[in-house]
Design a protein around this nucleic acid. Structure first.
Lengths: 109, 109
DNA sequence: TTTTGTACTTTGTGATACAAGGTATTGAAA
DNA sequence: TTTCAATACCTTGTATCACAAAGTACAAAA
């Protein structure tokens, strides 16, 4: 483990990526690369090997669905969208996140 | 996996417990049971099997040190305290946490 | 002496993210 | 036509973390 500071961020992020994906897809459909871009925009860097299994996991839980769409450049893209079940889960996650922030703030005093 | 909602919280918490321990010990020395109490106060429930290995890990990284202290009731207690190296790490973690909160807020827009 | 309570520790399991690969499709260059 | 580069999707192996469920050790009370 070379980069301690980076590892801190990786560990803190665990379990939050799922939340981030649902948050991103709550606004718009997106395919893997565009999701990675959105995460980069929020300074949450992830690699493909992390994202693809995660998307498949969420799809198997029926929190997401997808459709294929032709691209003007390159192979077709898998556009993911959030399901009703996904929105319900997202609400739970919003609550869990709020509680978590409150917990940390409590410890900061 | 029966309790989905609980699992959400468990997963989100991953990597944050370490931060919480350092935060708690930044104010005062404490032994395992009292740390668990402090976490309960912040609604971050953990069990012994989680906390002890974590404390040992932090001690091996020289972020914490400890001393034995006799108890009036029961066996002696291992009081942990944060080290200078631990305080440096805590600063890193404060920054990582702030960034994380900002990232999530960014995705909420 | 046995029991009860407190404190510390270990082992096995499931879940997550990463690194480092691989496969498949498309269009342009050779 | 064939080769190459770009894009997109997927898989495998590894490390880390939290939990459940045990176990060990000590001290005071019954």
């Amino acid at each position: 483990m070379e980069n301690i500071s980076e590892n801190i961020r990786i560990q803190m992020r665990k379990g939050l990526l799922e939340y981030c994906i649902l948050r991103i897809l709550s606004n718009e459909e997106a395919y893997a690369s565009s999701i990675i871009e959105a995460l980069k925009g929020a300074k949450m860097i992830v690699v493909e090997g992390t994202l693809y299994p995660l998307l498949i996991r969420l799809k198997n839980q029926q929190l997401l669905s997808y459709r294929w769409e032709e691209s003007t450049q390159g192979p077709p893209r898998k556009y993911y969208m959030i399901t009703d079940k996904g929105r319900a889960q997202l609400e739970e996650m919003d609550a869990a996140w709020s509680d978590l922030v409150e917990s940390i703030n409590h410890l900061k005093k």
